[in-house]
Design a protein around this nucleic acid. Structure first.
Lengths: 212, 212
DNA sequence: TAGTCTCTGTGAAACGAATCACAGCGTGAA
DNA sequence: TTCACGCTGTGATTCGTTTCACAGAGACTA
């Protein structure tokens, strides 16, 4: 019913609105929000409609109220606890985000199979050996998993997380991962993204400037 | 003319095909490639059509030949040199990918404003102070930039890269970045992705199992 | 040699999302 | 009080992508 892309954009609007709030701005027009989010005014209005909030034709949207409405919409349910599997560079980068992050999406556990990395706390997040994955996920009631392990281990990690009760996955491994139909999975394939950029860069820069 | 999403899927097929080649598989049917790439057989056939390759109704596609055709299609032009700006955890994670990566998309330079991180070589990639960005990008003929700096610095980094001749950008900063119209930009907003997953996880796990 | 089978390639249809375009409204000006 | 303005909310439209559905073709069987 609610589109994937609308949710993505609402998340962007939300961040922009919080920045505006910090800057003391009280009202915002759709075209302004659009410019700062990289989309069109019509799209902003459609998306805002989905949250049920309604603005004023004269003042536009009330920044605080719209931010609140998007918050209620995006984070309507209980806080979604998150587990991270794989404490490599990427995993650590994700943990470093936590301070900026939403308290409704707390990162409560991280797992790794390297004994040197576990049994300590990084950025406020406890690190466990991967053997304890099921145990911790179940006891903490974790519902979201982040897969930041090598490709070869991704499918098995996903399977274990799903069995333990996770219903949302964020997969950084450059591999297609099968999950049960009730689980939502989002793939962020970094090397694919880079190939895409390189492809379009190649189109845009025909060989004229290549020195040889 | 060629769709963004088709390019993304071709990149996925390519990786799957390379895996199959390593495994000694010589032929593959569209539905098999689809299953391993997370899409449908019809979509695979459409996408393959875009590369100009044609398979046999009996044997399916020749793994090596199709991989070659996709390679030619995706990497038709000169190698696209890449620069990374921001050597934090995320930046280092990206550098670590390089061994697995395509020689047609070499990461040739990294920049940071932390003096302690520069003037050395990480994973075969030279690190420079960010002051030298324009100089190195121009002299190396770098066409693709990766923005892995804090949000506040993202727009300025993008501007500098574009001025120096970059025509493709991969942006990890959770901010909308304006670039000139001839530059292709792809945004990978990690925290947005996590919010999206948390949202859909919230929908799928109605509060029944929350203990309290 | 004729028949059957299963796959590819692709026109056509279905679907979903972005955009257009305008009615309705509240405000400020005269 | 009336008018003009510029924005929002939203039905209608357009656009791009995915899916359907089937003709065509090569190999294998008998």
């Amino acid at each position: 019913m609610i589109s994937d892309k609308t949710v993505a954009r609402l998340s962007v609007y939300r961040r922009v609105l919080l920045d505006m709030q910090d800057a003391g701005q009280e009202h915002v027009f759709s075209h302004e929000l659009a410019a700062r989010s990289g989309c069109t005014a019509a799209q902003v209005r459609r998306d805002v409609m989905a949250t049920g909030y309604t603005g004023s034709p004269v003042r536009g949207y009330d920044v605080a109220a719209l931010a609140g409405s998007i918050n209620d919409f995006l984070f309507h349910s209980e806080a979604q606890k998150v587990a991270l599997v794989g404490i490599g560079n990427l995993g650590r980068a994700l943990m470093a985000f936590s301070p900026r992050r939403n308290p409704r999406i707390p990162l409560v556990a991280a797992f790794d199979n390297d004994a040197a990395k576990v049994n300590r706390v990084i950025h406020g997040c406890r690190c466990y050996p991967v053997q304890q994955l099921e145990e911790v996920v179940e006891s903490e009631g974790i519902r979201v998993g982040i897969i930041a392990v090598p490709s070869a281990a991704a499918q098995d990690t996903a399977r274990r997380l799903c069995r333990a009760g996770v219903v949302g996955l964020l997969n950084f491994a450059p591999t297609h991962v099968w999950v049960p139909p009730h689980v939502y999975i989002e793939n962020l394939d970094l090397s694919m993204a880079l190939e895409k950029v390189a492809f379009f860069a190649g189109l845009r820069a025909p060989q004229k400037e290549i020195s040889s």
